[in-house]
Amino acid sequence: MESTIIPLRSYTEAKKAVHILARNRIRASVVRTGSGRMGCTFGIRTNESPDVVCRLLRSTGIHCGDSMPFPPPPPYPHEPRPMHPHRPAGPPRR
């Protein structure tokens, strides 16, 4: 399953979320993300369904923000980086 980044509001909240999820046998890690609604923030990366994760986190009082599909982590440096099938076409990079 593709991993998802779920933006939260702060590092503290993200770390607490990781611990809560771990207690519920859901693996997650803290990441810095620019996908928060109000700018860069911390969130969690997880392979679990965002709906499941957010439902659990909201029940503990943690505000669960928008989620977005995110490409999996890049391969090790010595391997050629594969072209992502879903990377949107955009203007050529300078």
């Binding site: 509001r9 702060s10 590092y11 109000m38 700018g39 923030t41």
Partner: peptide
């Protein structure tokens, strides 16, 4: 380090 686009201080 959070909500940088927001001018008001975070509530949380």
């Amino acid at each position: 380090g959070s909500l940088s686009k927001e001018l008001s201080q975070p509530e949380f």
